[in-house]
Amino acid sequence: MIPASKTFRAIFGSGFNLADDEPGIYIEACEEVPEKLSNDPRGRYQAFKEEFATHIRDSSFAPASEGDTQWMTDEWLRNVWYDAFGPEPAPGDPYPVPAEDWGHRRLTDYMLHAVNETPELSSAGAPAWLETRGLTFADISAAVDLSATQSVGFRSAPEGWLEHLKDLTDRGLREPQPGELP
């Protein structure tokens, strides 16, 4: 699936890409997802979700700039997927994040921005968001403390990653990026 469709770009590019600029817009985009999926007469949101999963599966979401790498881009997408759609990994994800990492050893943008120590200091949608994912305010707080001594961000690329990417590229599922195997 290359390149991104018009629908995917319009939806992803109008909120899910903005956590670092405007956390409020990102949080709103994540909290709206259940309602958007249940009220989707033209199936656009479902199509967006399916294409999102395909980009994770095929590593076909190109890095934002030449200094970024496909692995870290995919790791970021896994976080956005979790924030938007919940704890089930994207269908077909070849490197799913261990379920027990989320909110404990791995913090996403929603957790970092929307979840503070109490519900009063957090986004109004945070209690429901946490409950859906089996997490608590105390879990996130503990993970923030852990972040002082170990990364709670992305994993490093696994063994065989470059060969895996080359295979996807050779099958025409994605465009090759700088620094990958020829």
Partner: peptide, 12 residues
Amino acid sequence: GHPETQRDWIAA
């Protein structure tokens, strides 16, 4: 400057 270091900075 990178997606992975942004997360660590916000956590810090």
